[in-house]
Design a protein around this nucleic acid. Sequence first.
DNA 1: CTGAAAGCGCTTACAG
DNA 2: CTGAAAGCGCTTACAG
Lengths: 376, 376
Amino acid sequence: MADSDLEKPTKVRRRKALAGDGRLAMAPDAAAIPAWTLARAPTINDVARLAKVSKKTVSRVINRSPHVHDTTRTVVDAVVARIGYVPSPQARGLAINRSFLLGLIYDNPNAQYIVNVQGGILEACHREGFELVVHPCRQVAPGFLAEVKAFIQRQNLDGVILIPPLSEDAALVALLRAIGCPYMRLMSVPLDEPSAMVLHTDRTAAAEVGAHLAQLGHTKVALITGPQRYRSTHERREGFLAALAERGVTVPDAWILEGLYTFETGEKRGMELLTAADRPTAIFASNDEMAAGVYRAAFRLGIPIPRDLTVVGFDDTPLSSRMCPALSTVRLPIHDMGKLAADRLIARINGGDAGRSQPLTVTPRLVVRESSAPPL
Amino acid sequence: MADSDLEKPTKVRRRKALAGDGRLAMAPDAAAIPAWTLARAPTINDVARLAKVSKKTVSRVINRSPHVHDTTRTVVDAVVARIGYVPSPQARGLAINRSFLLGLIYDNPNAQYIVNVQGGILEACHREGFELVVHPCRQVAPGFLAEVKAFIQRQNLDGVILIPPLSEDAALVALLRAIGCPYMRLMSVPLDEPSAMVLHTDRTAAAEVGAHLAQLGHTKVALITGPQRYRSTHERREGFLAALAERGVTVPDAWILEGLYTFETGEKRGMELLTAADRPTAIFASNDEMAAGVYRAAFRLGIPIPRDLTVVGFDDTPLSSRMCPALSTVRLPIHDMGKLAADRLIARINGGDAGRSQPLTVTPRLVVRESSAPPL
DNA sequence: CTGAAAGCGCTTACAG
DNA sequence: CTGAAAGCGCTTACAG
């Protein structure tokens, strides 16, 4: 835009007046193409004129106002159907100060997570006439908050959805509250009011992993955690260790190592654990990326999985089923989480009483594959 | 929306009139929060009043019209900066029949591809004041074209970007042309006018793979292709076979097998190739998913990679560097492709003369990792 | 170089 | 139950 002189029109308008007889105006060279594909979309004025009512009445019908006579409604509906009228969210939004746009704000390296959550969000969005604008960003970048704020206000977003780790950013959430932007947070700990969260019970799922290892008979168990600053790290650690402890298995401190949820740290920690004089027979890596790193360490050391080493991950990324052997891991229902979040967010935007609602909770489940075996 | 009566306001307007003295109105209980965070965004009217000029003049300044006196411009710019005015794309769009929205339409199982292309597109978008609306869909679903058309027209999208395999859908492209929606296609074959494509030279890249295998000394080479209906399948096959032929290596027809770009078909074809009496010493799987399937087949059969079998993939998904051993593959510069596509698309939307421009071309490159070795 | 009027497609009070 | 008028925030001819 910076270089062009906008005083000159740059494009033919797609929305012009209808021809007087109510049929769609046809472009000069529309020859082989059906008229309706080329002409501009019909407007509320077209419907009003054709139905011989006022714009206001058409508006009432569109918005399902009860104060419309059945006969009138029928006539208007018929015209709407006949000319294929669809209200413009742009104009509608300008009039009522909405955008019918939701934002997905993320700083997450897991592509599958993002695509899945997008899919779930859109399923809810389309049912309610919303669309999704995506916004990757860098939480650590200077001006991060100002940039996100500008994004939301510029687009007049009706609401935003936050996924981990951004969903744990207190400053970001404070900003959203300050500018009055409705939001939903996907997270593993109830840090907010119930109506603003979709909770995934990582603690319970990690406990399933602990129980699984104990049941296989493992007593020499190690844990590679995520970064301390993430809540999921603590949930997964505590659920895991508690379940093992319940079953009489104690994990020594020396076998609880911190990783950064990356492949590289998984490999590094795996090497440390597996090259020690005494080594574990099972390792729970707190996400799939780190589990893949452990695989690499075992591969380099010639330690066969699962014969000599059981490995369990978390996330169920595509990676986990492609690895050899296939990785046991925990599946997060990310698509559903996105859908639940968007459903509730839209309900709140539309004035629903989500205030006294229960928190939305989903349960990740252990998926046992080939990387699990009893110790030798 | 369906259930709520929109005749009753559902939400407080964020954009109201400024207080008479030109300072932003403060919400009643704004106590600890800075006023600017709570008040509605300033409008062009606020700028006009404060700068003591007309809206039109403010509009000219915003749009960098040359017909504005320097003094006037300076005054307006100062007011804009002081009150933090940002034009509303919604209102702007309604007036000039634009949305400042680009659409990414995809039916692609590769999450990393989508996230990377989104990132590239957004880099260009934000520089030009556009945002990205994502639209996953099913090419084979009934009503696919009508659904996409409704999406584009409802949101009045300024342009859309198509990635494989949707970028090869002739009916979809015909629809876009019919409704006058500018588009860009990411593809491996020049099927459109130069200005509407970002080309990735898969043929050349696959030739690199062929040369690589020949140079390692492989003469017993197999190929698992993608589905016949994709252009990339043919590009990769032909580039690969030609490069081998140039170096005196012939791939027998029995060793050219069709896959569906899925893990499962990769495994299936891998099993077929590796359980035959005479088996290849190298396999080129036309994408990483299928290469991972070949790994699994080799793993099940106890065939060590790369000692007894060299495997090369295509795409360089995160998978490829996580597998053991790390997979040699071809890296597509997807982020750059998205950026290039969006840059050109926006240039065309803004009335640029992209008509006589060269096609945008990117070169995928072979990345040699651990899965490559000379034959025994 | 600058501005008053009309319009983009929709909605909201306000009347009837 | 229905409509004429004004407005959302911006832009475009058209005058000056």
